[in-house]
């Protein structure tokens, strides 16, 4: 089975964000980069699916600048068989990223595609849906369990819903499955894996190689802003009972939120 895992390299969650002087992006120099945490679950699910089926290849794919090869090598060190890099230096919008990924999925004959439910940088949570629609595949997001049938024609997915609800969804394959935290515990890279990853040949495409040379982004970003600083609040004083009574009074009379 051809298992594809889509991943994105994002700034570490502890990153303090700074904005460029033209306000068109964030400062990316000196950032610590990680694999998007939700995509780590997708990598693990790809590897687990292969193990459960006892056959198949796991191919990881990313779209991004040269530095993103590191994320691919980390995934190979975790156990992925192949890696594909769609090399772009500028930032593409969700539409164009999905277009590029769709071309790669077609070339690779993907039978199941795993990805994280959203990337924690742009927070669009939209790539999986675009991609599935472009490929005319079904999509299931917020997956917390995914079982591929023995004949590999369908998958049964447990989906996390609102307010703690759970749904069981059955989908034909190929399909795009967007996973969330709770589906598995991603493994660490093994030492032999790290050695293998260093030497792994990574297939590279440009946007033009994928036949998308004339495509442009459909959205234009501008005016990045930091959120306004919150004014320092007040720490309440007195014994605990007094503080609690005062808090409730303030919430009711000053803040008017209860």
């Amino acid at each position: 089975m051809n298992i594809l895992v889509l991943l994105k390299q994002v700034p570490d969650t502890e990153t303090k964000i700074r904005i460029t002087s033209d306000k068109k992006n964030i400062e990316t120099a000196d950032l610590k980069w990680i694999i998007n945490p939700y995509d780590e679950f997708a990598i693990e699910e790809g590897l687990k699916t292969k193990e459960r089926l006892k056959e198949g290849t796991v191919t990881v794919v990313t779209v991004g600048p040269t530095r993103t090869v590191e994320a691919l090598r980390t995934a190979v060190a975790m156990g992925a068989d192949n890696a594909i890099h769609v090399k772009v230096e500028e930032t593409l919008d969700t539409y164009l990223v999905a277009k590029a990924l769709a071309e790669v999925c077609k070339k690779e004959g993907a039978q199941i595609i795993f990805t994280g439910k959203q990337a924690i940088d742009d927070d669009q949570a939209a790539t999986f849906g675009y991609l599935a629609e472009l490929l005319q595949y079904p999509s299931v997001t917020l997956a917390v369990k995914c079982d591929v049938s023995v004949d590999k024609t369908k998958a049964t997915i447990e989906q996390e819903g609102d307010s703690g609800a759970k749904s069981i969804i059955e989908t034909s394959l190929p399909a795009v499955i967007a996973v969330t935290k709770g589906i598995n515990t991603p493994r660490y890279a093994s030492l032999p894996g790290i050695m293998k990853a260093k030497k792994k040949e990574i297939k590279t495409y440009s946007i033009a190689d994928l036949g998308l040379g004339s495509e442009t982004s459909k959205t234009i970003d501008s005016d990045y802003q930091l959120p306004p600083e919150r004014a320092p609040g007040k720490k309440l004083t007195g014994d605990i009972t007094t503080q609690v009574k005062e808090l409730v009074r303030l919430l009711r009379e000053e803040a008017k939120v209860i």
Partner: peptide, 19 residues
């Protein structure tokens, strides 16, 4: 909304801004 909107945007071959 977050689930069906990207599919709709792909059908219209247009951009999306979420949340």
């Amino acid at each position: 909304g977050k689930d069906f909107l990207p599919r709709l945007a792909a059908k219209f071959a247009t951009g999306i801004a979420v949340d």
